[in-house]
Every structure is written in structure tokens, then in C-alpha cells.
Amino acid sequence: MTKAIWKGVIVAESDNCEIVEGNSYFPPDSIKSEYFISSDTHTTCGWKGVASYYTLKVNGEENKDAAWYYPNPKEKALNIKGYVAFWRGVKIEN
């Protein structure tokens, strides 16, 4: 089971992550939505498309744009459509 952990709290866990460019992408139904706040931030990847972001909020602390996903990826990245990846201090454990 792969887990995403921030501030000692598991914010996502799954046995069905997709690994892309060294990042674990968690299926949408594996995230614990109570810790996720939609962000207005967007970035663009040349082959995956436009990414959207979430800010994590755990025990009153926020980690801005610590998670990202591709709601409408390009064809080569359809396997991660809606899947969520992490950075900015979120620990991934297998």
C-alpha cells in the first residue's frame, strides 16, 4: 500500500498508483478529501497537459499547492486522468 503523508497524517493511500516521472499518482478515490482544498493554480506540462492543484490542510496547517492532478490530460497521459501526485514535503511511503 502506497501512502502520502503530511504532518503525520495519511492524506491518500492506494495499491493502484501510477508512477510517472518518478512521482506516485494516486487514484481520485484514494485521497482523503477532507484534507484537500481546491487551488486556482495551474501549470502546463508539454506532454501531460494542464495541471490543477490542491492545498493540503491538516490540523489547521496549510501546505499550498502540495498536490496536483490533470483533469483533462493529453492522450499520452490518459492513464493519470484525475490522479493526484504530491510534493512540498509530502512523504510517499510504500
Rank of each mutant, 00 (worst) to 15 (best):
S33Q: 07
V11G: 01
W6N: 03
E18I: 14
P28K: 15
A12I: 12
I5N: 10
A4Y: 11
S39Q: 02
E34F: 07
E13Y: 08
E21N: 03
Y54S: 11
S52K: 13
K7N: 15
T41L: 13
G22W: 05
G46C: 00
C45F: 04
V11D: 02
E13H: 08
H42Q: 12
L56P: 14
T43G: 04
V9E: 14
A4N: 07
E13R: 09
E13G: 08
D29R: 09
T44N: 06
F26I: 03
T43H: 02
V50T: 15
V9D: 08
S14T: 13
S38R: 12
Y53G: 09
E34N: 13
S24R: 05
K48M: 11
S33E: 12
G46D: 05
E13A: 09
E18L: 04
V9H: 06
K7T: 06
F36P: 01
S14N: 13
F26Y: 03
T2V: 08
E21S: 02
S30N: 01
I37G: 01
I19E: 09
N23P: 01
S24P: 00
M1T: 12
I10F: 04
S33W: 13
E18A: 11
T44I: 13
P27H: 03
N16W: 00
T41N: 15
E21C: 00
E13V: 05
T41C: 10
S14A: 14
P28W: 11
S52R: 11
P28F: 09
P28E: 10
K32Q: 12
H42E: 14
N16P: 01
S33V: 10
S33N: 11
D15G: 03
G22S: 07
G8S: 09
A51D: 00
C17R: 00
P28G: 11
Y25V: 07
V50G: 04
A4E: 08
K7D: 15
A4H: 13
A51M: 00
C17F: 02
Y35A: 01
W6Y: 14
V11N: 05
A51L: 03
V11L: 06
A4R: 12
C17K: 03
N16Q: 12
G46Y: 01
C17Q: 00
S14I: 12
D40F: 04
S30Y: 04
Y53Q: 05
T55N: 09
G8Q: 10
T43Q: 04
I19L: 04
D40A: 13
D15A: 10
P28T: 08
C45R: 04
G49P: 12
N23H: 05
I37P: 01
S39L: 04
T55P: 07
N16T: 07
D40V: 12
K32D: 11
N23C: 06
G49Y: 10
T55V: 06
T44H: 10
V11Y: 08
V50K: 14
